[in-house]
Amino acid sequence: MMPRVTIQDVANLAKVTKGTVSRVLSGKGQISKDKQEAVLAAVETLNYIPNRRARALATGRTAAVAVVMTEPMEHFFHDPTFSLILKGIYEGMDGTDYLPVLLHATAPAEEKKIADLASTGSFDALIHLSPWADHGLLASLATAKLPVVLCGFPVERSAYPEFSVVYSDDVLGAKLAASYCLSQGVKKPVVISGEEGNPAAEDRVKGYREVYAQLHEENRVLYGGWAEADGALAVAHLREQGIDFDCLLCGSDRIARGAINYLLSEGVKIPAGVKVIGFDDNDTATSSAPHITTVAQPMVEQGKRAFQVASEMVEGEVAGLHTLDVVLKERESA
């Protein structure tokens, strides 16, 4: 095995001191052009890879970004939303020195471990994929003097002005879906949303209601989970209760797929008998027939933007709100 190339090897070949090599690689200090070129040439010749720990000590940065998930682990693997955002984060980091550090916590003790890491400078920034599922981590991060980016809103939206937020406009997306239904002659819509209290679920219900006043009737809005099984259970409940509907406005594509499959099993034609509209535009929308008309959220772009904002905050940019556009994709289900 070849011995590891060290910073001293680079200094010897470039005929400079180790301190000069360190300053050239960190971009700090005034170094003559000749010495910079000599160091960079030596780095290339020796194929030198800086030790991350040593570079962290020299620059005060770790080149690591924590990516935090506080929903149950099964949501991470079953809900395409999280994997798409994570894909965008990885794509955003491509070509940079940054690496993601994935952290999962669903209990206060686990969140405290993350807060302790944040307070000791273990990473340069933190991207939170599920800030609405919180057991005190957000309050701890607010005092950690660490750049934090939230993908979506926490339940208390105005409580953390020091954090940046990158999100898709759920209210606008829901209004687009409901307005489309209105243009198609829908008179008796029902909403099947996600978990009650979840900011995305509540925003979508708000948007639907801005178009259809009858959705303020409690029996025309159902809350539950985000999965296919939840969609099927909701439709079964509606039919058992004798609630008449000609359109289902669903809080996710998975809910919509479950609702469609149940209706088809009952002999209901889609969209002739009931129109169904989803939300998200992930693979579930086109995985089987009929393809789902849905509100498309740019989840990969959200991940890319989240990393971009995090890296800019590391360089001194102030926190801000970054809203991504949504569009309605018309397909076969409505």
Rank of each mutant, 00 (worst) to 15 (best):
P147C: 11
A229T: 11
V166S: 07
E156I: 02
P161F: 10
E196V: 09
W226N: 02
V221P: 06
C151K: 02
L137W: 05
S158H: 06
S168R: 03
E196A: 15
G194T: 12
K175H: 03
R220I: 01
L141Y: 06
L176H: 03
Y160V: 05
S140V: 00
I192M: 04
P154W: 07
K145E: 15
S193A: 15
W132H: 15
V221H: 08
S140Y: 02
A174Q: 08
E202K: 01
G152E: 09
L222P: 02
G152Y: 04
S164D: 04
G194K: 13
A177E: 12
P189W: 02
T143P: 00
A227K: 09
P154M: 11
Q214L: 12
F153D: 11
V190Q: 10
E228H: 05
G173C: 08
G173R: 01
R157C: 01
E162S: 13
A178I: 09
F163T: 10
F163W: 10
K187H: 07
V191S: 12
P189V: 04
Y223S: 05
A229L: 12
E156Q: 14
R204C: 07
S158T: 02
D169N: 15
A174R: 06
A213G: 00
V205I: 11
E162R: 10
D169E: 13
A178Q: 12
G152T: 08
K206W: 02
I192H: 04
K145H: 14
G152M: 05
G197D: 11
L172T: 11
V155P: 00
D203C: 06
G136C: 08
T143R: 14
V171P: 01
V191F: 03
E217G: 01
K206H: 13
Y223R: 07
P199D: 09
S158Q: 14
P161R: 11
V165I: 14
E228T: 05
G197K: 11
P131D: 10
R204A: 08
Q214I: 09
